[in-house]
């Protein structure tokens, strides 16, 4: 039997959730035995080369590029998992959500203490090569269907490991009290 295929992505996240995945320590060797990695920052495979069984998503959607990647993952992964608070509820980037996007951009490029007076042309970057900012940061499940959620900032290595092995083996997932934490 061929190994299940795993893909991962970082959207509007800090890479901390991926670091937590690596935190499973020597079990990473078991993981490599259990699964084959496809598109992921860990393999540096940029485009899907085959249909995947499991996709892990870190971070929410703050721009058009994030939405594009997330939809690509939904299309190419049978099971999609939001891992970490940013993917689940927007996280730190979503602190901007109550503020209108125009005000955010003006603060960042025109009025903020580090830019005030320095941006003489008063331009807010708008090249079409630059991904378009969304009006707010969206949790992944508000953009595509997400099958499972692993809370935490980051989710503990134990939670990630339990979830992955349960998904791979088809066994029920172990959820001891101490592995579900939001911080």
């Amino acid at each position: 039997m061929s190994k299940p295929v795993l893909a991962t992505a970082t959207l509007a996240g800090c890479f901390g959730c991926h670091m937590s995945l690596l935190d499973i320590d020597e079990k990473i060797l078991d993981l490599i035995e259990l699964v084959e990695f496809n598109k992921s920052p860990l393999t540096d495979i940029k485009n899907f080369t085959k249909k995947c069984d499991i996709g892990l998503i870190e971070g929410g959607c703050c721009n058009s590029e994030n939405v594009h990647v997330l939809k690509d993952f939904r299309k190419n992964c049978n099971i999609l998992v939001s891992f970490g608070e940013c993917a689940i509820m927007g996280g730190l980037p979503a602190f901007r959500n109550p503020i209108p996007i125009k005000e955010c951009l003006e603060e960042a490029y025109l009025n903020g203490p580090s830019v005030k007076g320095n941006n003489k042309s008063g331009i807010i970057p708008n090249d079409e090569e630059i991904p378009m900012m969304l009006d707010k940061v969206y949790p992944c499940h508000e953009i595509v269907k997400i099958d499972y959620f692993l809370p935490g900032c980051p989710p503990s290595a134990e939670l990630i490991w339990n979830a992955l092995t349960a998904l791979i083996t088809g066994n029920e997932m172990e959820l001891p009290y101490e592995v579900i934490k939001f911080d």
Partner: peptide, 26 residues
């Protein structure tokens, strides 16, 4: 707006503790 990782009361908060007890994943 409950972003627990940046909250001073995380770990001591009753709302969060209820979410843990009732296994709120999302």
């Amino acid at each position: 707006n409950h972003f627990c990782p940046a909250c001073e009361m995380s770990g001591e908060c009753e709302l969060q503790a209820l979410a843990y007890r009732f296994q709120m994943m999302v």
